[in-house]
Amino acid sequence: MARTTSDIVIGAPPSRIMDVIADFENYPSWATGVRVADVVATSGDRAERVHFVLEAAPIRDQYDLGYTWDGDHSVTWHLVERGSMLTSMDGSYELEPVGDDSTRVTYQLSVDVSIPMLGMLKRKAEKVIIDTALKGLKRHVEGAT
């Protein structure tokens, strides 16, 4: 499955950015389209499984993602309970310190849906999702300083 990738530099250390990424209950306040993000299971102090309700036109769906954390370096996720539209979702955030007070956040995503969609259109949709998420994350992290 091909992945779409993009990155952004955020003016904060990796630990603060990863704390925001791991704070699922606040996703509806900054992650466009996310109406609900309920932690279903945890491992240690971070979520292992999260239930999402998404309303991002044209997709409205409910699904569960499973998460694997590597400290403040990266987090990966995959679809563990399909929704009515989403049939597959794999993604990751990788955090790399840049200088003393910034971090490059790289987001990779691959999504499949139950409706037929040309590969080119699917990649464009993934790119919009990634860019919107990265900008929202940057705004939320830097606004909290």
Rank of each mutant, 00 (worst) to 15 (best):
E48C: 00
Y63D: 09
A41V: 15
V75Q: 01
A47H: 05
Q62N: 13
S74P: 08
D72H: 00
G33Y: 01
D45P: 00
V75Y: 05
V53K: 15
F24I: 08
T68L: 08
V34S: 08
Y27C: 02
V53E: 15
G33H: 08
F52Y: 15
L54F: 00
A47R: 02
T68G: 10
V36I: 15
D72N: 04
R16M: 06
Y27P: 02
D64Y: 07
G71H: 07
L54P: 07
P28F: 01
E25K: 12
D23S: 09
W77P: 02
L65E: 11
D45S: 13
P28Q: 06
W30T: 09
F52Q: 13
T76E: 09
E48L: 11
E25R: 12
R46L: 01
D23G: 08
Y63L: 04
G66F: 01
D70R: 10
H51C: 14
H73V: 14
H78N: 14
G33R: 06
L79W: 04
V53F: 10
T76D: 05
T42W: 09
V34Y: 08
Y67V: 02
E25A: 13
V40Y: 11
R46E: 08
D38S: 14
R16G: 02
A56Y: 13
V50F: 00
Y67C: 04
S43T: 05
R16N: 07
G71P: 04
V80I: 12
E55A: 14
V40L: 09
F52A: 11
D19F: 06
R16T: 03
F24R: 11
R49N: 11
V39N: 02
R46C: 03
W69A: 03
